[in-house]
Amino acid sequence: MPNCHATAIVVAGTGILVEGHSGSGKTMLALEALAFFQAAGIFAAFVSDDQVCLSARNGRLVARTPRSIAGLAEARGLGPARLDHVPATVIDLAILLVDEQKAPRISEETEIVREGIAIPCVVLPQRQARRAVHAIAATLQLPPFGPGCTAV
């Protein structure tokens, strides 16, 4: 099972793989998303930070947390800190964090392929966690976006 430099979370039943270079804000995005969606009463769970084991299973991409870092997330300046987590999720969406100059104002529909499985991908500017959380909400049609949704 290949180890990928990424972070994984689940939001409203959708597994999300966050990829980007070291320091691009993967952990911050995951923590902001968890706080935002949980405060809105939407299921959100942490899977793995900085390392994710990926495998193809029945035509789906599965992300698992490596045992050595299960339940740990980097608290910058402090080091690894304990966090409730789920051990695995099926990945339905990828977020690719890139340099702001390379990020499109409006992300075009694109895909990435991991372990032979194509996954829809949204390209977003790095180190802009709150904006990225809103992009995730819009992509998944969650509050404050989507039909019948109320502002959070």
Rank of each mutant, 00 (worst) to 15 (best):
R60S: 13
F46Y: 13
R64H: 09
N58S: 14
V47W: 00
L140I: 09
V62Q: 12
A137Q: 07
V62W: 12
I136E: 04
T150E: 11
T89R: 03
A40H: 11
A45Q: 14
Q141N: 11
L78Y: 06
V52R: 01
Q141L: 11
I106A: 12
G148P: 04
S107E: 09
D92I: 01
E115H: 09
K26G: 06
V113E: 15
A132T: 06
R76G: 05
G13R: 06
S55R: 15
A35V: 01
Q101K: 14
T110C: 11
V52F: 02
E74L: 02
L142E: 03
L142H: 02
Q51H: 10
I9Q: 07
G15Y: 12
Q38E: 14
H134F: 15
R127G: 00
R64Y: 03
A35S: 13
E32D: 14
G20T: 05
G116D: 09
C149W: 03
L142W: 03
R127S: 12
A63I: 05
T7D: 02
L93G: 04
N3I: 15
F46D: 01
A81Q: 10
G148I: 00
M1E: 07
Q141C: 09
A88F: 13
A35P: 00
V18I: 15
P2I: 13
H85T: 13
I91G: 01
R131T: 07
Q126D: 11
E115G: 07
V133G: 03
A8W: 00
S68K: 10
C121F: 00
G25I: 10
K26Q: 08
L31R: 11
C121G: 01
G148S: 06
A135W: 11
R131L: 15
L17T: 08
G146Q: 06
G41V: 02
E109D: 13
T139Q: 12
E74D: 13
V152H: 11
R131N: 15
K26T: 11
E19D: 08
K26P: 01
L93D: 03
L17F: 05
C121Q: 04
E111Q: 14
G20K: 02
I106W: 10
F37L: 05
G15W: 12
P104H: 04
I69M: 06
E115C: 15
A73H: 10
G71E: 06
G23R: 05
C53N: 09
H85G: 01
A151D: 14
G13C: 05
R114L: 14
T139S: 08
E115A: 15
T7Y: 00
D49Y: 02
T89I: 09
R64Q: 11
D84S: 14
V62C: 12
P2E: 13
R60I: 07
P2Y: 03
H21E: 15
V10S: 05
P144W: 10
P87A: 10
L78V: 12
P144A: 04
Q128L: 11
V62Y: 10
I119T: 02
L54C: 04
G25Q: 01
P87W: 07
E115M: 14
R130C: 01
T27D: 00
A135G: 05
I95K: 01
E111T: 15
G23M: 06
L54N: 02
A118F: 10
R127K: 13
A56C: 08
L29P: 06
D49M: 05
I106E: 14
